[in-house]
Amino acid sequence: MSKKVLIVDDSIYMRSLVRSALEEAGYEIAGEAKDGESAIDLAMETQPDLITLDNILPDMMGFEVLKVLRDEGLESKVIMISAVGQQTVINKGKELGASDYIVKPFTSESLVEVVNKVFA
């Protein structure tokens, strides 16, 4: 059974980039969220195996979303997606239980590699 992935990113192009890359790699896309609130709702609803969580969202920061999800008891794996130079954010995510991270911009291959590693 393929793993379910929830994609959280405010940019539609990024969401479609990630979706196409993961679908090609054989993952099931549980859903896409463009902001924190919808991401939380969708995550609780779909209970995905993995969440690719962009750090910069219109309503809240990615690690805040992660905190809420962990507080709610969600145990999905999380890959933080961050722009260059946000090492502090990455560290925070790791503290909150993020499995790995990836820095934007990234290629489809590198993304799949990270995701595979998380599930390995």
Partner: peptide, 21 residues
């Protein structure tokens, strides 16, 4: 199409990084 999407995503990522630093 994929190249286009990737381009835009890349562009936006670079802009994000630019805006962060």
């Amino acid at each position: 199409y994929s190249a286009f999407t990737s381009l835009v995503a890349k562009e936006q990522s670079y802009i994000d990084a630019f805006l962060v630093i």
